[in-house]
Write a protein that binds this DNA or RNA. Structure first.
Length: 424
RNA sequence: GGAGAGAUGGCAGAGCGGUCGAAUGCGGCGGUCUUGAAAACCGUUGAGGUGUAAGCCUCCGGGGGUUCGAAUCCCUCUCUCUCCGCCA
C-alpha cells in the first residue's frame, strides 16, 4: 500500500508512474487526496471537541471534590451535548477513513524509474542470456513423456487423490524433488539466509499484509471453516514474521529463506501451458526474502539477482534474465526481474524465478519499521525472489539432460540424489 | 475437548475510576569521573495523527458497554501459560 503523503507530495508524478504500470484509474489519486483532506478536517474537529470534553471532565472532578454539586451537574449536561456531537463526527471520520483505505488499497506500487515502458511480456527487456541450448538426440521428448518413461510423477493418481494439477511424485522422481529442495536450501543458507519452515496456511491479516488480499482473493485456496488461506508462496508467512516489528538497524539486513509447497487455483489457461509440470495447483518452491534499509534496497535487488543467476549456472541450465515492463509487473512490485530457463524439448522458455523489490509497499501494510541512524522511525524495504521454483526446473533438467541411456544430472546434485543420472 | 490464570512501553514488572502516557528495574542514549574502559553517580529515553511551532488528540491484546471521567468496572473475541483428557 502506498503512503498517502506520496500522493499528496506530487500527484502528477504519481499518475505518470501509474500509467507506466498500465493502471487505468489514475483519477483515484485525486480522489484519495481529497478524501485525505476530509479526513484531516474531521479529525481535527473531533480532536478539538474531545479536548474540551477532557478539560470539562477535569473541572467536574475538581468541583465534586469541593462539593459544588449543582455547578458540576451543569457542566455534565454541557459535556453530554459535546459528546453527541463527537459521536456524530467520529462516525463520519470512521467512514472517511474506511473509504480512504478501500481506495488506497486499489493502487498498485509505483514502478521504479528503471522500469521499461510497455504492456505485454513482449515488451520486457532481455537483460542477459547465458548458457548454451543443448542439442538433443533424435528421439528426445518433452518432460511429460520422460516422466512416464522413467516413472517419476504420476499425474493420473494425483488427480484421483485430489484433482488435476496435484502431481504425485514417486520413487526417483520424488527423490529428485527432495534433492533439489535440499540443494537450494543449502545454497541459500550458505549465502547467509536463515532457513525457516513456515506454517502453510495463513490468516487473513497475513494475506492482507503481503498484498494477496484483497487483490488476489480468487487465486488462493480458502479454508472457510477456520478462515485460513493456503499459502500461494512462502513469501506470505515468512514476510509476516516481521509484521508489526520494529527493527534495530544492526539487525538488518534480514535475510530469510524457506521451502514450502505453494497452492494456486490458477483459473483459466489450458493446452501446452499446463501440460506436465508447466503449471500446477500445488508445487514446491524455495523463497528468499530480505528486509533492508531503503537506501540499500536496489543494491540488494542486484545481489539477489546474482544469487539466483549463479544457482542456475550451477544447475547448468541455459537461462535468460528479463527486466519486466510496467504492464507485466506484479501489483506490489517496484522493479522485477524474471528468470527463465530454456527447456529444450518443448523449445520454450519457462519462468522459474521472479525477483522483486517492493520498496515500502509491503512494509507499509506490515508496519515493519526500523530506527535509522538519526533515531527516526522509517518503513523498511522488502524484497523477495524464488530460489527456485521447482516444477519448471525439474522439467528443464529432464528435457535438457536426456540421453539414450538416461537423464544425466548436473554435478551439484549428485551427492543429494545419490547417483549421477536417472536411468530406467 | 474440560478446568484455571494471564495479556501494560525494547524487555521485565507495578498500577485506590480523576493527580497515569503510565511507578520501578534492566536495556538504549547523553554527561560527570577516568590516560582509556568498567563501576558509581546525574540526566534522558514509546508510537501514531494534526500543526511552522507551542500545543492538542489517540493508543495499556482486539471489539463493544457503564461513567462527566476507564489501564483500572462490565460484556465479548483472540492469543498465551498451567493442569487434565486425546493424539502424530
Amino acid at each position: 500500500m502506498l503512503q498517502v503523503h506520496v500522493l499528496r507530495n506530487d500527484p502528477a508524478w504519481v499518475k505518470q508512474r501509474l500509467e507506466v504500470k498500465r493502471f487505468g484509474q489514475t483519477g483515484l489519486v485525486d480522489e484519495i487526496v481529497s478524501l485525505d483532506d476530509d479526513r484531516k478536517k474531521a479529525q481535527s474537529d473531533c480532536d478539538n471537541l474531545l479536548a474540551q470534553v477532557n478539560t470539562l471532565s477535569k473541572e467536574i472532578g475538581d468541583m465534586m471534590k469541593q462539593g459544588k454539586k449543582p455547578e458540576a451537574e451543569e457542566l455534565k449536561s454541557k459535556v453530554a451535548a459535546y459528546k453527541a456531537e463527537i459521536a456524530d463526527l467520529a462516525e463520519q471520520l470512521k467512514k472517511i477513513e474506511e473509504l480512504l483505505k478501500d481506495k488506497l488499497v486499489l493502487l498498485p506500487n509505483l514502478p521504479s524509474e528503471q522500469v521499461p515502458v510497455g504492456k505485454t511480456p513482449e515488451d520486457n527487456v532481455n537483460v542477459k542470456e547465458s548458457g548454451t541450448k543443448p542439442v538433443l538426440y533424435k528421439g528426445a521428448v518433452p518432460h511429460w513423456d520422460l516422466i512416464k518413461q522413467y516413472d517419476l510423477v504420476d499425474f493420473e493418481t494425483g488427480a484421483k487423490i485430489t484433482g488435476s494439477g496435484f502431481p504425485l511424485y514417486k520413487g526417483k522422481g520424488a527423490k529428485l524433488q527432495r534433492s533439489l529442495i535440499q540443494y537450494f536450501l543449502d545454497y541459500n543458507t550458505e549465502a547467509g539466509y536463515t532457513e525457516y519452515i513456515p506454517p502453510f496456511m495463513v490468516n487473513e491479516a497475513s494475506a492482507y499484509a503481503t498484498g494477496q488480499l484483497p487483490d488476489k482473493e480468487g487465486q488462493m485456496y480458502h479454508v472457510t471453516e477456520d478462515d485460513f488461506y493456503l499459502i500461494p508462496t512462502a513469501e506470505v508467512p515468512v514476510t509476516n514474521i516481521y509484521r508489526d516489528v520494529i527493527l534495530k538497524e544492526e539487525e538488518m539486513p534480514v535475510k530469510m529463506t524457506a521451502y514450502s509447497p505453494c497452492f494456486r487455483r490458477e483459473a483459466g489457461s489450458f493446452g501446452k501451458d499446463v501440460r506436465g509440470l508447466n503449471r500446477v495447483h500445488q508445487f514446491e518452491k524455495i523463497e528468499i526474502i530480505q528486509i533492508v534499509q531503503p537506501e540499500k534496497s536496489y543494491d540488494v535487488l542486484e545481489q539477489m539477482v546474482t544469487h539466483v543467476e549463479k544457482l542456475l549456472q550451477k544447475l547448468e541450465l541455459p537461462y535468460r534474465i528479463l527486466k519486466l515492463c510496467g504492464g507485466d509487473m506484479g501489483f506490489a512490485s517496484a522493479l522485477t526481474y524474471d528468470f527463465e530457463v530454456y527447456s529444450a524439448a518443448q523449445e520454450r522458455w519457462l519462468e522459474v524465478s521472479s525477483v522483486s523489490n517492493f520498496e515500502s509497499f509491503q512494509t507499509n501494510r506490515l508496519k515493519c519499521r526500523y530506527k535509522d541512524a538519526n533515531g527516526k522511525m522509517q518503513l523498511a524495504h522488502s524484497l523477495n525472489g524464488s530460489s527456485l521454483a521447482l516444477p519448471r526446473i525439474y522439467a528443464a533438467l529432464l528435457e535438457n539432460n536426456q540421453t539414450e541411456n538416461g537423464i544425466v544430472l548436473p554435478a551439484v546434485l549428485h551427492k543429494y540424489f545419490g547417483a549421477d543420472k536417472i536411468s530406467s
